[in-house]
Nucleic acid binder design. Sequence first.
DNA 1: AAACTAAGTTTCACATAGTGGAACTTGTTT
DNA 2: AAACAAGTTCCACTATGTGAAACTTAGTTT
Lengths: 267, 267
Amino acid sequence: MAQRDGDGTIGKALSVMDQVANFGRPVKFSELLDGSEFPKATLFRYVQALTNQRMLRFDPDRNTYAPGARLMRLAHAAWEQSSLAPIARPHIDRLSEIVGETVHLAQLDNAQVLYVDKRNATQPIAMFSEAGKVGPAYCTGVGKAMLAFLDEDTLSSVIAQQSFHQFTPSTLKNETELRAELAEIRANGYGFDREEHEPSIICVAMPILTPRGRILGALSVTSSTTRTNLAAMEKLVPELSKTSQAIAAEAQDWRFPDINKSQTMGA
Amino acid sequence: MAQRDGDGTIGKALSVMDQVANFGRPVKFSELLDGSEFPKATLFRYVQALTNQRMLRFDPDRNTYAPGARLMRLAHAAWEQSSLAPIARPHIDRLSEIVGETVHLAQLDNAQVLYVDKRNATQPIAMFSEAGKVGPAYCTGVGKAMLAFLDEDTLSSVIAQQSFHQFTPSTLKNETELRAELAEIRANGYGFDREEHEPSIICVAMPILTPRGRILGALSVTSSTTRTNLAAMEKLVPELSKTSQAIAAEAQDWRFPDINKSQTMGA
DNA sequence: AAACTAAGTTTCACATAGTGGAACTTGTTT
DNA sequence: AAACAAGTTCCACTATGTGAAACTTAGTTT
């Protein structure tokens, strides 16, 4: 789970960022120190520099560090430029209106699923997933839909990084099971989540592919077994497919404006 | 506008991140090099390390760099831990439903306004589409509402960093005008945006203050002169005030769970 | 097709910038 | 008041990052 470095000071400092982020709550210096590969003085300097840079926020009352505000501005730029979300937005709006269930847009990042956008069901069910949230690839609809269309080299490297943690009784248990499932998804062009990540949560997922077959991301419609079933969900496939193709088409065309200096953002 | 460094390699690398983010579009290496303080080889190594770390994404087809996906996961953690947004969420939902207009939640970051959440009345949340966006402090409702409650030391440092760019005829022109406005806001407990940032866009803004008077953020309700006017907007002040106080109260109590080891996030 | 040009990448001698053991300071517990 | 833990600073050492220049592509021009 730890982010291996290798890029000198930059990599090491970023591994500290990950460490802080993974705590999921403000964390004391000493807590970071245990479980850190770095000696006290070194870690201290990193944390100090990162705090100066507002990549971390220090709470003087509680003596804790948390991920800082600068990340949000940078991430906003990442979201606009490196994700499908801005392109996909109108299409997802439309899909969500038609199907009336939760819609997710995800991309593959570092062998994990990164959710980049979401539309809530009209009658939302308890479950939180937001832009920026990450999840496992081997047991989510969007995850498997993307894995199914990776080239073999990338795929085996990604599979090697899966934990195969058994979230529910239906969670796929190992590479063999996963590969069988992926073959099926490849054949059908879409896949399901059969309560593999959370009990009673099911979904249909559809990859978003370039004309040449490169995987850009995935779309899914999520619901719960208390409300519907897989057979009913499968009926949404044509809508999903249409949406996915529309997004892929636009992603191809989309070029950023070539006007160089035109930042109107004041101050 | 450039992010001054001073924290060794970490600060320098992050200044490159800002530079890339500020372009607002994927950028070529040579474009970064012009307007960079770093020599070619040095910049190259930074960009390479950042790309390895997925802080930048390299597009081999177009030879361009853009902010990378890792930022989004980190920012998600920042949003959850270092912003008022998770606490404020239900209150903002409620407010947005009552007033039926656009609601913003913002914090002060580095002398700028950082929007951390938003409600669009009809449309649901798309997280980083608005959250993470930055804007000027001296000519927005939320910006001025926060500046009004800073201590003098911080305030003068922040004012020194304002550009006083003239967005519209009503934009405040200089420190004197701004300070007069801030005094008024301090007296009333709330402030307006009188088309100071965008023509025809007006808002009422309310600070979110701790019991001891420290500024946590600000709330605003935004509308347009085609639909309403300031006098009508002022009628919303009691609702805004109630919401702001509710958020402040919760922010005080809110402590992250003290359970140390309980990460259930698989893989 | 050879000659030119610009963009991107690698090299390598050099010194700056980062390292980390240990000592110190501050705050908390017995 | 002594003992302990957490956080911060010091400083000699050298690993790391530096950047001018050389090289290698890729894209144009003659």
